[in-house]
Amino acid sequence: MNPIQEPWPWYVAGPLIGLTVPLLLIIGNKALGVSSSLRHICAACFPGKIPFFNYDWKKESWNLFFVGGIALGAVFCLAFMHNGEPVQLNEATITALKAQGVQEFDELMPGDIFNWGNITSPIGLLFFVTGGFMVGFGTRYANGCTSGHSIMGLSTLQWPSLVATICFMAGGFVMTNFILPHLMKWLLL
């Protein structure tokens, strides 16, 4: 295996993600969490008179550097660590998604859905606008996302984070198995 070009197995990636928790704590007493950055962006750009956005976001600016780093890290991967191979998916997943209208399987994302040509279409309205809105609204309402609750919260053994994680999974399970297939067949076929 060439670790530069090839994808990493779960038992390499998972522990590395987990190590981010003690690393951030030891480096600067920071709690891992990504969705807070969305709140800081609101507070910095358009706080209005909303109390939830009137706080000193600059004190939390490390979080914005962190998410900027995530994007830069992905750019680095694209430039230097990319193998250009399709994701090695379960054949059953590919078959099911093809039946729902997905055609392109050669990259990390289905290119027939995630492209600028869909920006004003119902596909864009579902996958970018509605999906994105639910991610932003839901994570803030839940007071955290997969990183803040499922990694950081569970690492510090907080039961509300377990409740949140179970609800994340339940919502995702319902959408993937009972709602999205119908929407995709309608929009993509």
């Binding site: 509605t130 639910m134 839901g138 309402y141 007071n143 609750h149 409740v163 609800c167 319902v174 959408m175």
Partner: peptide, 16 residues
């Protein structure tokens, strides 16, 4: 919110 927000995020996560 851990429950309601969590469910809404989960639904959105599967879309995006």
């Amino acid at each position: 919110g851990n429950i309601f927000g969590g469910l809404i995020f989960g639904l959105g996560w599967a879309i995006t």
